[in-house]
């Protein structure tokens, strides 16, 4: 079901409430890592969920940022999802649109159908400037077998232009790795143990090594993102970037983790959203 997620600067908890079919509201419940009611609400008799929390890298001093998360439409599972997305798009209840594409399923029919829906909507509005396309799972490309992020982004751009989008902004991202790195950084800051098993930590460590080994190659794909301003000198962000974080059986400096985090593209997305909000 659709989720409305509101960024409230400085809010320490993340809280949620569900709106029932008959209009009843559940009341705010604090979400925790151990116990989340969201999956119950998603399968129950509710029409929407509201969430409030602080997106730490988005500043609301001009306007408050709100994400309207639509259920992923997929013909084979639930036709209603497509109708809901269509309804949200046609009701004009948004100022900006973030479209997530999947590197591993590029060009599939479900994606094409949804892109067509968005392209038709923008054709009516005539405004192509307030949309960003994320190419998620860009780290699924095998760089050692000459699969190139920049080439893939170029291919996605051409595809989008063919679909009717004028000069699309495309950001290659690694959502999963970004989340894991941010959880590691938060654990380091709070001086608590990493909330991952040793097997998962070893996998994360391996992925960090991989993205750092190819940081220039990934950086090339991010270079043309407007207002991303990618640089690999994160030392100004933290006082002691030489500090070590142990992930699995590897020691990384804080600087290496922040470098890897920049390569995930999520900071570029945040800057892009922030710039759009400020304009």
């Amino acid at each position: 079901i659709p989720m409305k997620i509101t960024d409230i600067d400085g809010l320490e908890e993340i809280r949620a409430q569900a709106i029932h079919l008959d209009g009843r509201v559940s009341g705010w419940v604090s979400l925790s890592d151990e116990d989340s009611c969201l999956s119950d609400w998603n399968t129950g008799t509710y029409t929407s969920i509201e969430i409030q929390g602080d997106f730490p890298n988005i500043d609301n001093h001009v306007k408050r940022m709100v994400f309207l998360d639509t259920p992923g439409p997929n013909n084979s599972t639930n036709m209603l999802h497509g109708e809901l997305t269509h309804k949200i798009l046609s009701e004009n209840g948004f100022t900006f649109l973030m479209f997530v594409l999947n590197t591993t399923q590029f060009g599939v029919e479900d994606e094409r159908r949804l892109l067509r829906m968005v392209a038709d909507k923008l054709k009516i509005d005539g405004d192509h400037s307030s949309i960003v396309f994320l190419v998620n799972k860009i780290d699924a490309l095998d760089l050692e077998r000459d699969e190139c992020p920049k080439t893939h982004v170029g291919r996605v751009k051409s595809y989008l232009v063919e679909m009717g989008f004028k000069t699309p902004i495309v950001i290659p991202v690694m959502g999963k790795l970004s989340l894991e790195l941010r959880v590691c950084l938060a654990a380091h800051k709070a001086q608590i143990a990493l909330p991952f098993s040793s097997r998962v930590q070893c996998r994360i460590a391996h992925e960090i090594d991989y993205v750092l080994a190819f940081k220039e190659t990934y950086g090339m794909a991010l270079k043309y993102v407007p207002s991303a301003g990618i640089d690999f000198s994160p030392s100004s962000l933290h006082q002691n970037t030489a500090a070590n974080i142990r992930i699995g059986d590897r020691d990384f400096t804080l600087e290496e983790i922040i470098e890897a985090e920049i390569i995930t593209g999520i900071p570029a997305l945040e800057r892009c959203l922030q710039a759009s909000l400020a304009s």
Partner: peptide, 28 residues
């Protein structure tokens, strides 16, 4: 005043993970 961002994606695109990454926690 709200700046509303509609998030649109086909299934399995990882959009919830991206929102979680921006929140810094796997809560959604």
């Amino acid at each position: 005043d709200e700046f509303v961002v509609a998030v649109v994606a086909p299934m399995s695109s990882g959009k919830t993970t991206i929102l979680n990454a921006m929140l810094g926690k796997a809560l959604l």
